[in-house]
């Protein structure tokens, strides 16, 4: 091809209407899609971040640092598949949002790590605000068809390793724990069990227990008074459950 003819060829195409600019409407629709995609992803990320905090709060994992350095090892251990997937899925979404926003906002000029940290921290901060609002509590209490199951999966499935609930029938070698999902988990205290300094286990106390399941008994490794994972109403409800009720056994 003769390179000098490129401009002539293009102008000819323009004149003959074989080459046209994308219309303003086209561009506006494209922009609207992009904005909608970014906003949807961002809203989902905020929900995910707040939900993650809520799930960690309900299962007590959020309060593991209260146990000191020993509990660090448990931070990842007691995650349910659901919470785990949130942890891995979250960063993937952050990366996707970074790519979407980056094109317009010149985010690509910054190192990727900075972009991810800025976006991740922003989502976590906004998510923390949403977590402190009554949104998740209200959604869970409504027992909605799909969301309800999701809430249960995320907040009640870690009892093989951690359990938060009310102490009942305590004795020197253990107690029964009535958990958030209204299950009764026998807890055994052993010589290596670490109990929060200055605390001795009493009936009706709200506690968080970390341990390992052995023959349907949770052998406690760490016991701590429960942080505010239980609402006053829930505590009251769990305290009033009759341990001899047949429905309780069947759960």
């Amino acid at each position: 091809m003769n390179t000098q003819s490129i401009d002539q060829e293009i102008l000819e195409k323009i004149e003959q209407q074989r080459l046209t600019m994308r219309s303003r409407r086209d561009l506006a629709v494209h922009r609207a899609w992009l904005i909608a995609a970014v906003v949807s992803c961002a809203l989902f990320m905020v929900f995910l971040a707040s939900f993650m905090l809520y799930a960690l709060h309900r299962t007590g994992v959020l309060y593991l640092p209260l146990f000191g350095s020993r509990a660090i090892a448990y931070l990842l251990h007691p995650f349910s598949w659901f919470t785990g997937s949130l942890f891995f899925g979250g960063p993937v979404l952050v990366i996707i949002i970074g790519i979407l926003v980056g094109r317009k906002a010149r985010l690509y000029r910054m190192p990727l790590l900075y972009v991810w940290l800025i976006l991740g921290t922003s989502f976590l901060a906004i998510g923390a605000l949403v977590f402190m609002s009554p949104l998740h509590g209200a959604l869970q209490s409504r027992r909605l068809p799909v969301l309800g199951a999701l809430y249960n999966a995320a907040t009640c499935s870690t009892e093989t390793n951690t359990a938060t609930g009310i102490v009942r029938e305590s004795s020197a070698d253990g107690f029964k724990l009535v958990t958030l999902s209204k299950k009764m988990v026998p807890v055994r205290l052993v010589s290596s069990t670490i109990i929060e300094r200055g605390y001795s286990v009493h009936d009706n106390d709200a506690v968080i227990v970390i341990g390992r399941m052995s023959q349907s008994v949770l052998v406690a490794e760490l016991v701590h008074r429960s942080p505010p994972a239980l609402s006053a109403e829930e505590e009251r409800e769990l305290r009033n459950i009759d341990l001899n009720e047949s429905f309780f056994e069947s759960r």
Binding site: T3, I6, I10, T20, M21, R22, S23, L27
Partner: peptide
């Protein structure tokens, strides 16, 4: 390469409003 460059100008014109 000439063809690719021509394609570049075509795309540039099509997307000039952006």
């Amino acid at each position: 390469i000439e063809d690719v460059v021509q394609e570049v100008f075509l795309r540039a014109y099509q997307n000039l409003r952006s």
